[in-house]
């Protein structure tokens, strides 16, 4: 079919659509909206009255809370968000807000942090799309994202720290099966440090006998067209360091192949909707890791790996 023919058919489709919508009555919509806005307005007026009463009650509660706080028994910020940040997990969807809310322990010794991801519901109200508790945390970090190039999709890295005991807790979250879930949930990472470099999440942790252990985490996904998309297509690592590929494959399946010149597969896991494959860099040199989706073997992707020996 020629482009010209298609343009003609689209003009015809436009006429057909106008005919289809011609008998729709917009007046009833107008009446509904006016009655709905009126009802919301009177509801708001009621709310305003209630809010005044609540304000007075809240002032009393604040005084009641302030007294024990004044004597050092209660952390003031408990239950109130300490930071709020907007993040975008997908260009085609509205942004979300991440709140970190400190939660005091019943014995008032130490606190945890609840991370809450809010999104706007169709009714215009905010709903919780994801939440996770970071136990024994006293410090939060700004949320960073890892992008899948060309897709508009991102993963978000949320993390907090227990600075007294030098532990890090983190979550890597994103859309999986139309919901927001964690790809990685790590707690109590001793001496942990995290950074995102060129689409790679770098996790460093203290291992008792081996010194610091560095893992380079590269997420991938299979998009709606069946294309496998990696967040990075090249990586340099040191001998002894590890590479972890974590994929949102929603059980579509991906085969991994390397010539094992420099990296060697250690293990492979397939929890629900995701796949995790871990490689160890054992020798300096270059390697190519081939990732082939089961759904279309022609859509193979390369990860170029260079291993150096700086021990």
């Amino acid at each position: 079919m020629s482009d010209r023919k298609l343009e003609e058919l689209l003009k015809k489709a436009k006429v057909e659509s106008e005919q289809f919508f011609s008998d729709w009555n917009y007046e009833s919509l107008k009446e509904k909206v006016i009655s709905e806005t009126e009802s919301r307005r009177s509801h708001r007026a009621e709310l305003f009255g209630t809010a005044r009463k609540l304000g007075i009650a809240l002032a009393c509660i604040l005084v009641a809370v302030w007294i024990p706080y004044r004597f050092g028994a209660l952390p003031l910020k408990t239950g109130t968000s300490v930071t709020q940040q907007a993040i975008n997990l997908d260009d085609s969807k509205p942004s979300y807000l991440v709140d970190f809310i400190p939660i005091g322990k019943p014995d008032h010794r130490g606190q945890s942090i609840m991370a809450v991801l809010w999104g706007e519901s169709p009714g215009g109200e905010y709903k919780v799309f994801y939440s996770s508790l970071f136990e024994d945390s006293d410090r939060t970090y700004p949320v960073s994202t890892i992008e899948f190039p060309g897709t508009g999709s991102r993963l978000a890295l949320i993390y907090s720290e227990d600075s007294r005991q030098n532990y890090l807790h983190y979550r890597l979250i994103g859309y999986i099966n139309e919901g927001i879930k964690a790809l990685i949930e790590e707690n109590l990472v001793q001496g942990g440090k995290l950074s995102i470099r060129d689409g790679v999440l770098v996790e460093q942790r203290a291992e008792s006998n081996l010194g610091d252990m560095v893992t380079y985490i590269i997420p991938y996904l299979i998009d709606g067209k069946g294309e496998l998309v990696l967040s990075a297509d090249r990586l340099q690592l040191n001998v002894g360091e590890q590479l972890m590929l974590i994929g949102i494959d929603e059980n579509k399946g991906v085969q991994f192949f390397s010539e094992e010149n420099s990296v060697r597969k250690i293990n492979e896991k397939n929890p629900e909707d995701i796949s995790i494959v871990r490689y160890n860099a054992f020798s300096a040199g270059e390697d190519y890791l081939l990732l082939t989706p089961d759904s279309d073997k022609a859509k193979v992707k390369n990860l170029h790996i260079r291993v150096i020996d700086n021990r």
Partner: peptide
């Protein structure tokens, strides 16, 4: 509606919306 309109509506959402907004 008509046959061609129905085919446009059968397009996957992200293409359908762009096509209807444009044409």
């Amino acid at each position: 509606g008509g046959e061609v309109f129905q085919k446009v509506m059968d397009l996957p959402l992200k293409y359908r919306i762009v096509i209807v907004l444009y044409y």
